[in-house]
Amino acid sequence: MSAFLETLQLGRTFGGLKAVDDVSIAIQQGELVGLIGPNGAGKTTLFNLISGFTAPTSGEVRLKGERIDGLTPHDIAQRGIGRTFQNLRIFPNISVFDNVTVGAIGHENIGLGSILPWQKAKSDRITQKSFEALQAVGLLEEADQLAANISYGKRKYLEIARALAMQPDLLILDEPAAGLNETETQHLASFISRLHQEGRTIILIEHDMRLVMSICQRVIVLASGRKICDGTPDMVQKDTGVLEAYLGVDE
């Protein structure tokens, strides 16, 4: 069986710099995979290649066997990849609820014709999916507040809710724990585990080692644009290459 999402010798150079170099990874359906690496390892670039924000200079990305590299971000999103952003990107001047609807709107792919009366079912589905997503992250109470007015921690969940409203097959979370304190991170960890237990396929890009090691079944390590390790958290923690990448080589 071919993997749910796979990259084949994926590469991207910026000028002379190989930001992502010959990276092949495979994610199976229902997996929760951690993607870690020191700063500048190419995690976010890899992620941008998968979600269509950056076009690869070499290699392929396949989702459910179909090539998706070179497609626009909205095409890829509609094929079932939902994402959050490293530095929060919510829509500040609209309500929390309206923020979440955008994910559902993308999924329904609405256009000018959506205002016609017989398209009401679409609009009702958007309402329903948005409420479900808000309920899943526990933000129903804040639905009518302006997104700019809720706390930083809640905005993180808002971003996840918006991605959930897209009803994605694959959810990619880009450093969701950044800027959260210990308790908040623990809460987030159990939330991500719950999403995984509900059967979602998730890639978690994270700096917080403990978070990744505690909830992921498999961890992929990138360093200087290359994949240096791919295995269980235990394996990764004992790998000398990984230790070198993080701590530097002992002279």
Partner: peptide
């Protein structure tokens, strides 16, 4: 850009 990533 963000809207694009949501499938818009």
């Amino acid at each position: 850009q963000c809207a694009d990533a949501m499938g818009i």
